[in-house]
């Protein structure tokens, strides 16, 4: 017996959510790149800006991805919501690493384009070759690949303070200790994949509300940023890492409390140490 997927009617249409958050994410990624390009040796202020704006870019991208997942999964894709997150990041990580090779100021745009191309092909395969016949499939998987790519860029910026290929492939002390060769990209990969699918998966049901799900996406983004900020102590100066850690912690705490409030608003009842009363008794 399966549970029917029901979604609320959105107050804000998906296209608006996508444009707004996509543009904001790109904007913050560019701030991160600009800050990284002017950062000199030993300074902490520019790396701190790069780390924090990378994290904020990841948060905005996750809001976009959350809206896409909701649109796609409301059709019932045969397997769970989490698989969509895995697909997004499996294709996103390839596009993201490809994009890091180009001129720093083209990285986010190049990543977006490559991810959209890879995603379009994957979406077309699912829809036509696998014959899933879901109207939004092609577009949604393309969007998800782009979301995966941009989220990884954001989380990479939080950890290393930069998105360039050279920065993420050379370590501080020995060659075994770079972002890629130490496998930290795997942490960003799975962190983003769960953070992308969690908000809709956790809030699905007949009483799902767009603002609550959206808030959870922001909360997941800041939670991921906390983890990457802790890891960033190994890559960036201590002060910069502390700044992004504290900002992530504050952002997470505020949204987490807000999420409790919204859940209380939507719940049927909010009981503490009280039994349920059975209608049949």
């Amino acid at each position: 017996m399966s549970v029917k997927v029901e979604v609320s009617h959105d107050g804000v249409p998906h296209n608006t959510v996508m444009m707004k958050n996509g543009i904001l994410a790109l904007f913050f990624l560019y701030i991160a790149i600009a800050a990284a390009s002017v950062a000199g040796d030993g300074s902490w202020s520019y790396p701190a800006i790069a780390c924090v704006s990378g994290g904020i870019a990841a948060v905005f991208t996750l809001r976009w991805g959350n809206s896409t997942i909701k649109k796609l999964c409301s059709y019932g894709i045969g397997t769970g919501v989490p698989s969509a997150g895995m697909l997004a990041f499996g294709s996103g990580v390839i596009a993201m690493l490809f994009a890091t090779k180009v001129n720093p100021f083209l990285v986010p745009i190049a990543g977006l384009l490559v991810a959209l191309i890879v995603g379009l092909i994957l979406g077309w395969i699912s829809n036509s070759v696998l014959n899933m016949k879901i109207p939004v499939m092609t577009r949604s998987i393309a969007e998800l690949a782009a979301v995966g790519c941009l989220t990884l860029m954001g989380l990479t910026a939080v950890a290393t303070g930069d998105i360039g290929y050279d920065q993420i492939t050379t370590g501080l002390t020995d060659p075994y200790a770079s972002y890629i060769s130490a496998g930290i990209i795997a942490v960003a990969f799975i962190l983003g994949a769960i953070a992308l699918q969690h908000p809709f998966n956790a809030c699905l049901g007949p009483g799902e509300k767009q603002d609550r799900t959206d808030l959870l996406a922001i909360e997941c983004g800041f939670l991921s940023m906390i983890v990457m900020a802790v890891i960033s102590f190994a890559f960036v100066s201590q002060i910069a890492a502390w700044i992004s850690f504290v900002i992530a912690l504050i952002g997470w705490f505020v949204t987490y409390r807000q999420f409790f409030a919204l859940s209380k608003r939507d719940a049927a009842a909010w009981l503490d140490a009280k039994p349920f009363s059975d209608a049949e008794e």
Partner: peptide, 24 residues
């Protein structure tokens, strides 16, 4: 954190069926 948000999110979305959130 993920556990609490999942419990709150799912349970709040079941409000239509009268499923309460139990804080304890």
């Amino acid at each position: 954190i993920y556990a609490t948000t999942a419990y709150l999110g799912r349970t709040a979305s079941l409000s239509k069926f009268g499923q309460p959130v139990f804080i304890d």
